[in-house]
């Protein structure tokens, strides 16, 4: 007998006869009395979803900037210059205008590139799929303006552009509703961190140690 049959047989004996289709009973079995829509929590009401996003991003040590569509290229150029970045990874579908004013070498992410190649770039600039205000989270789904997962992982400096208000939701349930589980997803809340030394949070381990977020309107 295969281990598959063994395990399934044990489960069957442990639970005994049950109704045939659990999916029918599922909705009744699971009460969802928690908030699912745009929250009416006090913090969201008082400050508004955008301010809450900025506040929560900053609380976990992301650096937050704001720009409108006209000022975006200028802002990105300044951020990269301030960082001293010379080689910048660019996902294939990043709008070319975004980096039009940056005096940097734009490095495409080619399939043949190894992790060592990625380790030799200074920064990466991407868009995002969804941003969650209530938790200060950016979600990347590998769309052309975000690129493969590795491009936002190996470089030490990540600049992520969030189109507001369209890409911003208040809560985790709303974000899941917008995402496609078939795509590889990365949820990012601040720069990499650890709580492993005395259960106290320290920023900066393996992922990008600096995360800058640009909230851009009118794009």
């Amino acid at each position: 007998m295969s281990d598959r049959d063994v395990v399934l047989g044990r489960i069957g004996r442990a639970l005994g006869p049950r109704p045939r289709d659990p999916d029918v009973t599922y909705e009744d079995a699971v009460a969802r009395a928690y908030r699912r829509g745009p929250g009416d929590g006090a913090r969201e009401r008082d400050s508004g979803v955008l301010d809450l996003l900025a506040e929560n991003l900053a609380d976990y040590r992301a650096v937050v900037h704001r720009a409108d569509g006209d000022g975006l290229a200028d802002l990105l150029a300044r951020l990269l210059a301030a960082r001293g970045a010379r080689r910048v990874l660019v996902p294939p579908g990043l709008p070319p205008t975004w980096l039009a004013e940056a005096a940097v070498e734009q490095v495409p992410d080619r399939a043949a590139d190894t992790a060592y190649d990625l380790d030799r770039v200074d920064s990466v600039v991407t868009g995002c799929a969804v941003a969650i205000a209530g938790t200060g989270t950016l979600v990347l789904d590998g769309s052309p303006d975000q690129g493969r997962r590795r491009v936002t992982l190996v470089p030490d400096h990540h600049v992520c552009v969030v189109r507001v208000p369209d890409q911003v939701v208040a809560s985790v349930p709303e974000a899941l509703g917008r995402l496609d589980p078939r795509r590889p997803l990365t949820w990012i809340s601040g720069p990499s961190a650890t709580s492993d030394i005395e259960l106290d949070r320290v920023e900066g381990v393996h992922g990008p140690r600096t995360l800058e977020v640009v909230l851009v309107s009118g794009v």
């Binding site: 969650i132 209530g134 990365t186």
Partner: peptide, 26 residues
């Protein structure tokens, strides 16, 4: 777990969805 609103990184993947069929992601 860590008393955070959200942990710094969460990864979600489905089979090799980022692999052969996708754009060589992962």
């Amino acid at each position: 777990a860590t008393a955070e609103r959200m942990n710094p990184y969460t990864s979600m993947w489905t089979g090799t969805s980022g692999g052969p069929r996708g754009e060589g992601d992962g």
